[in-house]
Amino acid sequence: MTMLFHALIDALNWVWISQFLSVLFISVGAVFFVAGTVGVLRFDSALNRLHALTKADNLGLGFVILGVMLQADSWALVLKYVMIWGLVLVSAAVVSHLMGQRAYQLEQQDADEQDARKQDAPTSSADSIASTEQGDKAC
C-alpha cells in the first residue's frame, strides 16, 4: 500500500515537473522568436537580417519543440518532433547559405557600380539610380 502511494506521488511529481519544464522551454522559445522578428525588422542590411533570423528563429523553434516534446506520450511522437526540427535546421542552413551568397553578390555589385560612378562624369541615368538608392537607405 505504501509502495503504491509512493509510486503515485512520484508519478504526480513527474507530471508537475514535466509541465513546468515544458512551460519554461516554450516561453523561452517564444522570447527567441520575438527577438528574431525584432532583428529582422530593425537591422539595416540584408546580411545582418539574415544573421538575426537564422540564429534566433531556429533556436526558438528548438526550444518550442523541446517543450512540446515533454508532453509527448509515445516515442514515435518524439521521433517525429526530432524529424521536424532536423528538417527545419537543414533546410534553413541550405537556403540561408544560398540567399546569403546572393545578398553578398548584390552588395558587391552595388559597391562596384558606385565606384564606377565616382570615376565617370554624372549623367541623368546615374541620378535616377542614386535616387532609388536613397529610398533603399530610408527603409
Partner: peptide, 26 residues
Amino acid sequence: MRGPSRVDRMLAAQLLGTSSVGILLL
C-alpha cells in the same frame, strides 16, 4: 512589404515558415 531587395522579402517568408511550424505544433 518594405524589404528593399528580393532577398529580404524571401528571408522574411522563411521566418514565416519557421514560426508557422511552431504555431502548428502548439
